[in-house]
Write a protein that binds this DNA or RNA. Structure first.
Lengths: 238, 238
DNA sequence: CCAAAAGTGTTCTCTCTACACCCATGG
DNA sequence: CCATGGGTGTAGAGAGAACACTTTTGG
């Protein structure tokens, strides 16, 4: 921090942090990565991973660094986008703390246990957290809520759903992402048409994967398209 | 700021500001409210109105306060939403400054001249600013760019377009908002059907307004609906 | 053969689009 | 009467919803 800045503004400074909402699908449930806080405030409570932004990095770089430090996940392979800023006075008992929340979406990833900073990181089902919001430290329940709504909306207008699937994936895998996050079942045949007719959403690998039961499914990879047009609107929002 | 916080984090603190992108339509052009900066850095340059967030207010309250102080506009009657956080190192020569940008949409408003803080506030056409981005201080050209794209998207999925029209307004007025911001002309009859069939978008007042030329138009007010479903997709995005 | 999931086809409906056409006003 | 913008009607194309039906595997 530049000395001139400190002098000119006196004590009107804030602590700025980044928090990460890292979502994935595990065993048919939307799941978020949490850490157990090791320091006050909220020591011992569950919280979103995050930390202070350094003065020589962008907000996005800070998010990637915290992701690596706290969870040992390489974020460059995840979908990462800014969710918003949270700065209500009183959201942190220490005083004014503004946090920039980031949304990270990825396939089910193993979280290393033991040895590292990430030792205390674990996956938790989103549904339970939203049902009892006081589980989470700070205003993280609200951040999580906003993140989920953002994801549901992103599924409608973009191809990010594929970010949840480890490659290669079947159209059934992809459909499960929508079904879990939207909380409703979709017609498999209409879903197939929608996805395969959206240019650049998925790419056929030519390979197949035998299923636990039923006919083997063709395997796909993520395509180059990022936006869905026309969009894939949630049924029942009308 | 709590003393504990200052001690615990040392100098890793940032200045947090809010910046406002206040958009309106004036004479058929998208227009943004700017101020001439009265202090370094960028003294004398055009910039988005904004300022420091106080420690006892929310980010949104800070945005409303700055709006009032710098432009004398009562923001409670505008559409106000958070756009995002901008915090690249180097965006402010004084050091690390994180700004939370807010988007404000409203009808063409008179800006008071003289006497107040708002004396140096004025409307500027957006097109010229985007064509020569170095006109604006800091990274405000990028913020403005993001704001415009956000607005164009909001027009598709929400009823905010009506926020640009002083009440009561005609469907021609409303259509102009779309045409100006999307940069293309729309079929008037299809537009009418779309709007009047979207429940709660506009409310018929029963009154009429004589036009400069042609048949008088029915006057409407904003309806209670905030979301458009089905959305009103931009033509040609496909 | 049966269950289950993949994948195809069909029909109905709704929306968007384009464009023709009528209405009401000022000049 | 004419130009102009408001407002209505209509035919065609395309997308989505619902659902019947076929295919391909494991058990």
């Amino acid at each position: 921090m530049d000395d001139r800045l400190k002098r000119s503004v006196g004590v009107e400074l804030s602590l700025v942090t980044v928090d990460l909402v890292i979502l994935t699908i595990r065993e048919g449930e939307a799941t978020v990565l949490l850490v157990e806080r090791g320091a006050e405030p909220f020591k011992g409570r569950a919280a979103l991973p995050g930390g202070r932004v350094r003065s020589d990095e962008t907000l996005g770089e800070g998010a990637l660094r915290e992701l690596r430090e706290e969870t040992d996940i390489d974020g460059t392979r995840l979908h990462l986008e800014q969710l918003g800023a949270y700065g209500d006075p009183g959201r942190d008992p220490r005083g004014r703390v503004v946090t920039i929340a980031y949304l990270a979406l990825g396939p089910d990833l193993p979280v290393p246990k033991g040895g590292t900073d990430a030792a205390h990181a674990y996956w938790a089902p989103v549904a339970e957290l939203l049902a009892s919001p006081d589980t989470l430290a700070f205003d993280h329940a609200r951040v999580l809520d906003d993140a989920l709504e953002r994801v549901r909306e992103r599924l409608e207008y973009t191809t990010v759903a594929a970010a949840f699937c480890p490659e290669p994936f079947t159209l059934g895998d992809l459909r499960e992402v929508y079904e879990v996050l939207w909380g409703r079942s979709l017609d498999a045949s209409n879903f197939r048409r929608k996805v395969t007719r959206s240019e650049g959403f998925v790419v056929d690998t030519g390979e197949q994967r035998p299923q636990a039961t039923g006919r083997p499914a063709v395997l796909y990879r993520r395509g180059p398209a990022r936006l869905l047009s026309p969009p894939f609107l949630r049924p029942g929002t009308v």
